[in-house]
């Protein structure tokens, strides 16, 4: 299968500090790809670079054959590359409904927004109960649901998820991973960043391991789950 999203030799700097040292990875049609690695490995920077929030100094990012390396963040969203960022980043002083509406901001087809909102509410009934509440008053888990729901409102052609399970209770983690698999079954490819490497690799088809801005390992999720180094470093096994 051909790659939908592809990074080739991407290097990103924050000032003089190099965060990404030549990242190459692919996400193919319909698959979940897990990007795992420790703190500061460059996982979030990878997603920020794809979304255009930071610029790649070198390398090339393509989406469905189009070069998006130098595209603006809003153009990238319009192409269908949608991110639910780390820390949820929901609009705290806006209601759940307004947050979801903003998720559909870049869409031209205004009429189907209501229907999509109902889909999100079906996925997360808790959000329906709290639709008029301000985002800042939601619990961490509800905020995460809102962040994912908001991303879905954009009708993504590919979804970038940054630490969707961070800080959630075990039950909520299950729910979130369930939803991730569910979204993927509808045909949306997902690039997933997770601290919880085991869960990520269980749901993913393939994975990449990132260390200090370099990809040190890649393979099928099953291979990575069985890999000795990965088990020691990221799965907490000896």
């Amino acid at each position: 299968m051909s790659a939908v999203l592809s990074l080739v030799g991407v290097e990103t700097f924050y000032g003089r500090i190099q965060a990404l040292r030549g990242i190459s990875l692919d996400v193919r049609a319909g698959e979940i790809v897990a990007l795992i690695g420790g703190n500061g490995a460059g996982k979030t920077t990878t997603l920020r670079t794809i979304s255009g929030l930071v610029r790649a100094a070198h390398g090339r990012i393509t989406f469905a054959g189009d070069d998006i390396t130098h595209a603006m963040p809003d153009q990238i969203v319009r192409m269908g590359i949608v991110q639910a960022p780390e820390g949820r980043r929901i609009f705290q002083r806006m209601t759940v409904l307004e947050n979801l509406e903003l998720g559909a901001y870049a869409r031209a087809d205004g009429r189907s927004v209501r229907g999509d909102m109902d889909d999100v509410f079906a996925l997360f009934p808790r959000l329906a109960e709290r639709r008029s509440q301000k985002g800042g008053t939601l619990s961490g888990g509800e905020q995460q649901m809102l962040a994912i729901g908001r991303a879905l409102m954009a009708r993504p052609k590919i979804l970038l998820l940054d630490e969707p399970s961070l800080g959630l209770s075990p039950i909520l983690v299950e729910t979130i991973f369930h939803v991730i698999a569910d979204i993927n079954k509808r045909g949306v490819p997902i690039l997933l960043i997770e601290q919880n490497a085991r869960k990520a690799l269980q749901v993913a088809a393939r994975g990449y391991v990132l260390e200090t801005g370099t990809i040190v390992k890649e393979g099928t999720a099953a291979d990575l789950l069985a890999d000795d180094d990965v088990r020691k470093a990221y799965l907490g096994e000896d």
């Binding site: 963040p73 809003d74 969203v77 806006m94």
Partner: peptide, 24 residues
């Protein structure tokens, strides 16, 4: 209005607003 909402969103979190497809 849509622009008004974009302004409020950008005021609260500029990066998140960009990720909604808002031209900040």
């Amino acid at each position: 209005t849509k622009l008004g909402k974009a302004m409020r969103a950008s005021a609260q979190d500029r990066d998140a607003a960009s990720l909604m497809g808002i031209n900040v």
